[in-house]
Amino acid sequence: MTLLSAPPQTTAGPPPAAPAPLAPAARLLPALAAVYRAQLARAKVARIPLLFVATFQSLGILVMMRGVVDPGDNAAAHTVVAGSSVLVVAFVALNLLSQYFGRLRATGGLDHYATLPVPAASVVLGAAAAYASFTLPGTLVTAAVGAWMFALPAAHLWVLLLVVPLAGAALSGLGAVCGLLAPRQEIATLLGQLGMSAALLLGVLPVERLPQPVLWLRDLLPSTYGVEAFARTFSASPDWAAVAGDLAVCAGVGLVSLAAATLAYRRATTR
């Protein structure tokens, strides 16, 4: 009998065997480290040009705003420099990560991860951490140039070492959610771009000139708290409690958005 019309014998077959042992699954932290390392290596191939774009965009905004905002110790100058710096984080962590996950999902690249025994959180956190790391050089450069252009003290630039990871967590989580849930790749790109535009307009423009509804929107955007925290450190005597408060908001939003991104990943990979 050559055909399947009589399926393999089920009554007189060999004796039953126990299920095969399962290979061990990858553990959270080693897998996260592996994804992080691979993502950093990707930057060498794929992302360097865009990292320059992110930085140049922010430098360009600094130059433009220098024409309308006076240098020196004033709130507007603080906001412009802080906003331009955090914009680099928004560009890379939100916009580029959203595009990356959108493309991965659209092209079937997520299948690669979905057929490996790797925790969802490792993939999402590894990618998010890598994208947040990419932003650090650009953010530091923008902040240093901005402080020089607007004659602001550069003594507290170290606070960026907290702002970048915390705002990075919040924004990259958001970016990953957009990329993973968008039904089409173009929509992921669109959402990423919109998020970045929001961070640009709401983060860079001096607060006192914005109308109230826009301010409400501004309060909803996670990058705002990174901008505020950083901007506060330019004043002669920074209010460190307020800085810590803003950073705590970033951290909280970061936790929530990364958790949401992990759920979004699970949803995207199990259909």
Partner: peptide, 15 residues
């Protein structure tokens, strides 16, 4: 469990 039993080569390499 499939990921712990088999290795899969899909048609895409984008990852």
């Amino acid at each position: 469990r499939a990921a712990r039993l088999l290795a899969y080569l899909g048609q895409e390499s984008s990852a």
